[in-house]
């Protein structure tokens, strides 16, 4: 099962079926019910309290704050109705941040899909040293986005001559390129996309390898008997259709991860002068609105968080539907 937080949620779980059969006669039920309630809360209580305080309370509070003028305060008194939402949805920066996310997703989602599938196919097709290659491609998952940003920003895509990319280009007579500071053309996208590719390809490759290994051998054997040759034909007509559930999982996980992009944008693009005005994905924008140096605006920050949460909740619910659908057709 290619489990994803949301994928396993709707449809696939039946809490009703978890109830064990009653073990005693009807007479004991009353007392046992109370005993069970105590036992249940003994186990679930601490977690439930934590979830209430650190998941439900923040969201509730934030919905409240989003209707108030809450600059530099978390206990505001001036009710402003939908002003914060209107500001978010009509002024430029928040919408621009959604645009930045869309552009990033447009770059990262297809490339991750194709390259992780390619790696999975290659690794799956070799005999010797298979585990070695799989480990090498999976290893970057151990690295944090912060460390990757360090390497990409100060070593590989350093804008001066000793940067690796500029050194290599220099061999071909190309002038130095200011990778992370250049907006025309926007080379920083190349930096951000290759960084995320390096860090996450191995993870999605593992999902694809698991998917490939679930495809029954006899499908290929039957195709070969029918005269199909290994290669594009079997890939197109057997492998790809059989990988449908995995493919949907990879696409959606990747999309949801891109939606939350923060670490590498913040670390690659920030300088001593602060974050540049361009390329601010939603979380970076919220970070500077709610916690930035120019004053903390929890009203607008909360409104933004509510909008982002609503958008992602819709995607997760759709994901559940798509997954249920994909699983049925498998």
């Amino acid at each position: 099962m290619t489990g994803v937080p949301g994928s396993t949620v709707p449809g696939s779980t039946e809490p009703g079926s978890t109830e064990p059969k009653p073990r005693r006669g009807k007479k004991a039920q009353g007392g046992k019910g109370r005993g069970n309630a105590r036992a249940f809360w003994l186990f679930v209580g601490p977690f439930a309290v934590g979830l209430a305080v650190f998941a439900y309370l923040p969201i509730g509070w934030s919905v409240l704050l989003s209707f108030f003028d809450a600059r530099d305060t978390v206990t505001p008194t001036r009710f402003v109705g939908l002003d914060n939402y209107l500001h978010m949805l009509t002024e430029g920066p928040f919408l621009a941040s959604l645009g930045t996310f869309s552009l990033f997703a447009l770059f990262i989602v297809p490339t991750t899909f194709v390259l992780s599938l390619a790696l999975a196919l290659l690794v799956n097709q070799i005999g010797f040293a298979r585990a070695f290659f799989r480990s090498v491609f999976f290893l970057p998952t151990a690295c944090s986005y912060v460390v990757a940003s360090l390497v990409w920003k100060l070593s590989i895509f350093n804008g001066v001559r000793f940067g690796l990319a500029n050194t290599v280009l220099g061999w071909f007579g190309v002038d130095n390129i200011a990778w992370t500071a250049s907006t025309d053309p926007p080379w920083y996208w190349l930096v951000l996309v290759t960084l995320r590719l390096w860090l996450q390809l191995g993870f999605y490759m593992i999902l694809f390898i698991a998917g490939l290994q679930r495809i029954p051998r006899h499908l290929y054997e039957a195709a070969w008997i029918d005269g199909a040759r290994p290669g594009w034909q079997t890939f197109r007509h057997i492998t790809l259709p059989q990988l449908r559930a995995t493919s949907v999982a990879v696409l959606l996980l990747n999309l949801i991860a891109a939606y939350q992009a923060f670490d590498e944008f913040y670390n690659v693009l920030s300088t001593a002068r602060g974050y540049p005005p361009f390329a601010r994905p939603p979380l970076v924008y919220l970070y500077y609105t709610a916690l930035g140096q120019g004053g903390q605006d929890f009203g607008r920050g909360s409104a933004g968080a509510v909008i982002l949460a609503a958008l992602i909740a819709i995607v997760t619910l759709l994901q559940g539907k798509v997954f249920g659908f994909a699983r049925r057709s498998d």
Binding site: P5, G6, V9, L51, A55, Y56, P58, I59, W61, S62, L65, I256, Y259, Q260, F262, L283, L286, Y287, A290, L291, F298, G301, S302, G304, A305, L308, A309, I312, A313, T316, L317
Partner: peptide
């Protein structure tokens, strides 16, 4: 709570 990633609600 699984519908909304924790990162999205860091302000609240």
């Amino acid at each position: 709570t699984l519908m909304i990633p924790a990162a999205v609600t860091f302000v609240p």
